[in-house]
Amino acid sequence: MATSHKEVWQRATVVEVRPVADAVQRIVLAPEHPVAIEPGAHLDVRLALGTDTVQRSYSIVDADISGSRISLSVFRSLHSRGGAGLMHALVPGDTLTVSHPLQDFPLRFGASSYVLLAGGIGITAIAGMARVLRDRGDDYRLIYVGRTRAAMAYLDELIALHGDRLDVHVGDENTSLDVRRLVATLEPDTELYQCGPIRLMDAVRREWIERELPIASLRFETFGNSGWFEPQEFTVRLPQFGIETVVGPTQSMLGALEAAGADMMFDCRKGECGLCEVRVLELEGEIDHRDVFYSERQRDARSKLCCCVSRVARPQLGAVVTISSS
């Protein structure tokens, strides 16, 4: 039972748009039914992509006290699954279908100290937490990691707000974050909240487990859209139903299989629950595990994958995966 997990749909009107970093657009929405926003909350957005309706999740960066103005910030990578392009095209006066705010990443109050770690666009989930902890006078550090300063949304505002509680690590300035050192120097009762690329989050998780810190004190959210390879087209075969189909770079394997008529089981669609697990029978390429359901050991086995978010990849050549499903 998350604090608010029930998807109720409403209309929202775009009231303001502006770029806040390279390829990052801030979009302010006025929802039909405002409710106060908790840090860590997100919105699901329904978008018409060609003839399909796709659903995307975006963290709420900030909102006014009543939730009548909600700000999202959307990163559009070269390989965005199409949704980001539609979001970047919004202009004031447009309307779109959004969920009521959903909460799967709640900030707990009362910890003795906090580390908030944001990588790239992950700052959207973390900025609100940092603001609340600052306002409460809690002991926190905010760590913000990016490739270039120009790509880091809200950097100036965060520096102004958090001063020396903020550590900035920038790839092209050779100030990359030393994850091992970060985790090694934490007080044992620190709570760490992270949102960012899967490589960063996995590195933290690995160190966390190695140091035997309490696993429930490592908090993270992923919408399953970050991987080890750039998304590319591949072929999936499901011999038990006689299905072979191509998964486009902006499509999920689950979506492509459903479109091809396969009766698939799934629930969360973000790589958490494990219900969409399929068995890998043959593989030409590498599995790009984008879920958080498998442990490190299970990922290494390469025999199963969560088809709602995970993909396969093979540089230059087309990857092919043959699977069986429930």
Partner: peptide
């Protein structure tokens, strides 16, 4: 029946 914990 699983090795990880769903973050939600």
């Amino acid at each position: 029946a699983q090795e990880t914990i769903n973050p939600s």
